[in-house]
Amino acid sequence: MAVIAELPDNVAVTKLDELVSWCRKNSLWPMPFATACCGIELMSTGASRHDIARFGAEVFRFSPRQCDLMIVAGRVVMKMMPVLQRIWQQMPEPKWCMAMGACASSGGVFDTYSVVQGIDRFVPVDMYVPGCPPRPEQLIQAIIDLQAKIQREGTLWGREFDAPSRQQPKRALQES
């Protein structure tokens, strides 16, 4: 009796989470926030040879309301950061953010007065893609890794986003 009372809950919740995550991970709709050179490689990834459609992520939408994966490809400067934040806020949950390239992850070669030294100081980032620029293959690998992450951690109600570590920007605003 006790077993029957507990089992359906247990089974149902786990499976639904997995099912939903499975759906989500295979239909990522990227929002290409392409600012610089990495954006060209992002275009290559979408074009004929590398064809990102093979991984269910080809529906580039330029309206943030329709997207769930923001790919920040290129350096973000202080004049652009408020725009990026607004677009991030306009995207519906659940959403993920990918910092493509050295510039978006850390500022890259541009340690200058105007370039933000890593977008993770100001918005949450789920996946970093190293490289300057990352090759299309590498971007595809990052999307596969993100899919694995979604499958592994994803929950129906997005509880994975509530973890305290997700609440803070990755690096505090300490600056020498």
Binding site: T35, V77, K79, M80, F110, T112, S114
Partner: peptide, 11 residues
């Protein structure tokens, strides 16, 4: 413009 001004000349 200036949404991608990254200080090339200063660099």
């Amino acid at each position: 413009i200036g949404y991608l001004h990254s200080g090339f000349e200063k660099l």
